[in-house]
């Protein structure tokens, strides 16, 4: 089944089809803008990393038409995404849903920023303590005078 499907897809892709045909578009610009927002969130199943909105593939066009049909039927954006997802799986969503197997993915930026923060704090505690005292001790001052007099050292 998979083979047949991909063969059909391959045929469709081979034809010079245009992404978003003029004939499928809504006349109402606001509605059309919404169709695109939704289209950008759905992946063309045949392509490597294109949304159905950007893809020339036949399957992408079919999905775009389906999205437009759902919009006409009065579905909200979320309902449309869910409608497509039920049929094609999570793979079809450009933005992965937040659930069991994607917690790690969605936590990544938070964890990384926390790590950066903790690392920074730890490092600075070690680094800056020697700088905390804003006045020079007498020995330091004498040393500084000596270096300044000699010149050259940076």
């Amino acid at each position: 089944m998979r083979l047949i499907l991909s063969a059909i897809f391959a045929l469709l892709v081979a034809m010079p089809v245009w992404a978003v045909d003029a004939d499928e578009m809504f006349a109402d610009p606001a509605l059309e803008e919404r169709a695109r927002e939704v289209g950008r969130q759905l992946r063309c199943l045949k392509c490597r990393n294109q949304s159905i909105f950007d893809s020339n593939a036949g399957i992408a066009k079919d999905l775009r038409v389906a999205v437009r049909d759902r919009m006409v039927a009065g579905d909200s954006d979320q309902e449309i995404l869910e409608y497509v997802r039920v049929r094609f799986g999570d793979y079809v969503l450009m933005k992965p849903p937040v659930e069991g197997h994607t917690y790690l993915l969605w936590m990544t930026p938070v964890v990384l920023m926390l790590l950066a923060g903790v690392g920074f704090a730890g490092y600075m505690r070690g680094r800056s303590s020697a700088c905390a005292d804003h006045t020079l001790s007498d020995t330091d001052r004498a040393e500084a005078q000596r270096i300044l007099k000699e010149g050259g050292a940076s």
Partner: peptide, 24 residues
């Protein structure tokens, strides 16, 4: 890095296919 490799890793480990696209 994680966003790029996560789908690969997930598919190898669990077989689940997800897409991490531009919105992420």
């Amino acid at each position: 890095f994680v966003g790029t490799l996560y789908p690969l890793a997930l598919e190898m480990v669990t077989g689940d296919k997800i897409t991490v696209g531009a919105p992420y």
